[in-house]
Design a protein around this nucleic acid. Sequence first.
RNA 1: GGCCCCAUCGUCUAGCGGUCCAGGACUCCGGCCUUUCACGCCGGCAACACGGGUUCGAGUCCCGUUGGGGUCACCA
Length: 524
Amino acid sequence: MTIRTRFAPSPTGYLHIGGVRTALFCWLFAKANRGRFILRIDDTDRQRNIEDALRPILDGLRWLGIEWDEGPGVGGPFGPYYQSQRTDNYQVAVEKLLEAGLAYHDYATPDELQVERDAFQHNEQPFPYSRRFMAATAEDRAKFQTEGRRSVVRLKMPREGKLIIDDLVRGRVEFEWAREQDHVIQRADGSHLYHLASVVDDHDMQISHVIRAEEHLSNTPRQVFIAQGLGYELPEYAHLPFVAEPGSKNKLSKRKLAKYLKNRDFAQMVEHGRQIAEAIHIDTSPETFNPVIVDFYRQVGYLPEAIVNYLALLGWSLDDKTEYFGRRELLENFSLDRVNRAPAGFDPKKLSAFQDRHFRDVPVEQKLVLMLPFLEQSGLVPTPAPEEIVAKLARIIEVSGDRIKVAGDILLYADFFFTADEVMEYDEKAFDKRLRKPADAAELLAKFRDRLAAAEQFDAASLEKLMHEFVESEDIKIGQIIHAVRVVVTGKVFGPGMFDCLAILGKESCLARIDRAQQILSGN
RNA sequence: GGCCCCAUCGUCUAGCGGUCCAGGACUCCGGCCUUUCACGCCGGCAACACGGGUUCGAGUCCCGUUGGGGUCACCA
């Protein structure tokens, strides 16, 4: 039997990080077993703009390299892959269940039902619906209808016995049928509910393994009941632990951004992302710009490989030492029996560590491709960037080494290479410390400027030599001049090697920046 | 509240009865490297929730307690 898994998101307009983890495991499991991964859209809720609400989800999955074998855009033998287009199948299933006496028309009003529910609220017993408004015969239906009542279709759940599920990650789980309610499978308006649709589709699409998040575990009995009632062979079930909030065990939720911001690491991640986002002028409202949403990472310039690697390890592990996985290794090693049962907290720091690690291994040419769009979008370089700027960027990336950890960092780290000499911004604190405060700073800077102006070679090695000669002849420590020069030329207290910066900037620009700093100093 | 799930360093985890005075990774803290910031390297802090069993022997099995979480819709 070929393994077939599915991920069935609702078109909500965004791709949740927890959802992606589920999708990833489904995909990994299918692909690791030469099976197929199906994407199905759970849009029974029927919204106006399904395509708009779907795009971020499809884009996100594709960006991460979680490609589906069947589903929207690619089709497949079991289409359509939108539940809103499969209602005929659901109706057939409802009729079948009705005929078999496993479902019934119920004419209770919501209020009447609520009264019954409330009556059991303080009782220790489960809530068994009295079925007072169950229509057993056509006469019953007619009678209720003359009373002006409308009906829904409910499952007629067993009131005794128990269900045993052998879950692939949780093991044996038992449920008492009597605790299950008579769930609605078809609304009064004729539309069908998720559980019915899901079970029917899973069967029709020959899904062999239902892999989903833990919160669905308690929903499983009713689905099993439907499946069995329809004579389906049951799929295997695997209920994954959910992804928890940073610093707690609650399910990660998009809505609680404000709360997560109180977590230092999380706040830092958002702040860092926000700086990049603002530099490229994109919206940073929490609705769209939020680390709980996958798009955040794409916009800031994280690597999909890093996200995938991190997510894979959230609830799964290979052994006691391997953590660094490429897509290939993941595919070769993934298995459901090594999935953990406890929820795993989302840790921004650890995600960053994976990003650093993966980014380090990206060759310069590739980094160039990733970073250039950020510069173009920021307006720091023209679009499309002319050849000489691309060449300059390549050098910058080269000399930046491992300092740049996310593609978007190029804007925070190396913007000074592209800003005009007269508008480059200084780190004011550093300017004070290195230029204004030391009594001899201005004088040393002036002398060093003369040396630079006279320099014939302007490559990093020559400049370093020049600097050392300068230090020697002035009889000063290198720290007395080099920090000042860095601030004057880059405006920052961090960055690539000093001499690389000078060399890339070029003599003219370096001198201009020194002149500007001197003006500021004398103006004070 | 009922039902269900879960429980090893701050975090992610390894551990499937003895090789565990519990291993790795991230974080954090020292140190080295160094013109900055990173990287890298070296070192350190730090955990089996509790209580009963079973067993010659329990982080590992069973029961209970506690704690955490999920779920109880004409949402998905």
